[in-house]
C-alpha cells in the first residue's frame, strides 16, 4: 500500500487531481451547510451578474443562486456519474473478460450481444429508455449505464485476447491454475490500466450525458444537477454567460481531476511502466 501511494504520488498531476476531486467531494458533502435551504429558491433578481446582490456567481433566469446550485448539483452529478459508471463497469468487465478469455462461441455470443447495443445510437437509446421509464434519477442512471458498458466490454476483450497468448498466462495455465484465478489474478491486473483510464473518462461522459438529457428536457426535474444548470444556461448564454460558464468549469475541473487521478492510478497499478518512467524522469 505504501509503495502504491509512493508510485501514485510520484505523478504530480495525479496529486493535484486528487486534491481537486477531494475539494469537489467536500463541496458536495458540505452543500447543505454552505447553502442551507433549497437551491430552487428564488433568492434574488433574475439574471444578476456575479458579485451583485450578494450572489457570488450570479443568479439565473428565475433569480436562483448559481453558487448554491453548483454546490447542491455536485451531489447529484457525482452520484449519477459514479453509480452509472460502476454499473457499466460491472457489466462491461465481466462480459469482456468472459469473451476475451474463453474465445470461441462464448466470445461470439457476447460480441454479438455487445454489437447489438453498439449498433443503436447510444444517445438515442438513452433518450428512448428515459422516455419510456419517465425521467427520474434512477432511470437516468440506468439508461447511462446501459449505453456505456459496450466500450468497456470491447476494450477488455481486446486486452484479454492479446494477453491470453502471452507467456505469463501460458505459464500459469501450465502450472494448472484455475481459470477464475488466471482471469482475475493474472490477466485482469495487466488489463487494468486501459480500464482505469476508460472508467475515469466514463464518469465524465456520464456527467456530460446527464447534462445532454437534461438539456433536452429529460432530466429529473426535482434534482438540481450540473447538467440541469448548463442546460438551463445554454439558451441564455448571450444574456447570462455565468449561468453556463460556472457549472461548465465545475464539470471541467471534475473531469480533469478524475482523469489525472486515473492516470496516477494507472501508473501506480502498472509498476513496470512506472519504473521506466522513474528512470526517465
Amino acid at each position: 500500500m505504501k509503495e502504491f501511494w509512493r508510485n501514485f504520488a510520484r505523478n504530480r498531476g495525479a496529486v493535484v487531481g486528487l486534491a481537486i476531486l477531494l475539494g469537489v467531494l467536500a463541496l458536495a458533502l458540505l452543500a447543505p451547510l454552505l447553502y442551507p435551504g433549497s437551491p430552487w429558491d428564488m433568492a434574488g433578481m433574475p439574471f444578476a451578474p456575479p458579485g451583485e446582490m450578494g450572489m457570488l456567481l450570479g443568479t439565473d433566469s428565475l433569480g436562483r443562486d448559481v453558487a448554491a446550485g453548483i454546490a447542491h448539483g455536485a451531489r447529484v452529478s457525482l452520484l449519477v456519474g459514479a453509480v452509472s459508471t460502476v454499473v457499466a463497469l460491472v457489466i462491461g468487465v465481466s462480459l469482456g473478460a468472459f469473451a476475451g478469455y474463453l474465445g470461441g462461441w462464448a466470445d461470439d455470443v457476447v460480441m454479438r450481444f455487445t454489437e447489438f447495443f453498439q449498433t443503436i445510437p447510444s444517445f438515442v437509446l438513452a433518450i428512448l429508455l428515459v422516455a419510456i421509464f419517465t425521467p427520474t434519477i434512477g432511470s437516468i442512471v440506468f439508461a447511462i449505464a446501459v449505453v456505456s458498458w459496450p466500450p468497456v466490454a470491447r476494450v477488455v476483450r481486446a486486452e484479454f485476447l492479446s494477453l491470453r497468448s502471452r507467456e505469463f498466462v501460458q505459464a500459469s495455465e501450465v502450472l494448472g491454475k484455475s481459470r477464475l484465478s488466471i482471469v482475475f489474478g493474472d490477466i485482469l491486473p495487466n488489463a487494468l490500466s486501459p480500464i482505469v483510464v476508460l472508467a475515469s473518462l466514463m464518469v465524465a461522459s456520464a456527467i456530460l450525458l446527464e447534462s445532454a438529457l437534461s438539456f433536452l428536457g429529460l432530466g429529473d426535474p426535482n434534482m438540481m444537477s450540473w447538467g440541469f444548470l448548463i442546460g438551463s444556461g445554454r439558451s441564455v448564454i448571450r444574456i447570462a454567460w455565468w449561468m453556463s460558464v460556472f457549472p461548465g468549469i465545475a464539470i471541467f475541473l471534475t473531469v480533469l481531476s478524475l482523469n489525472l487521478v486515473g492516470e496516477g492510478l494507472s501508473d501506480a497499478l502498472n509498476p513496470r511502466l512506472t519504473r521506466n518512467r522513474g528512470g526517465k524522469a
Binding site: 465524465a204 448548463i230 445554454r234 453556463s244 461548465g248 471541467f252 473531469v255 480533469l256 482523469n259 492516470e263
Partner: peptide, 17 residues
C-alpha cells in the same frame, strides 16, 4: 494532456456556440 481533456470536458453545444 490538459488540452485534450479540455476538449473532452467542455459540452459540445458550448464549444459550438
Amino acid at each position: 494532456t490538459v488540452l485534450a481533456l479540455a476538449f473532452y470536458a467542455t459540452p459540445l453545444f458550448w464549444v459550438g456556440l
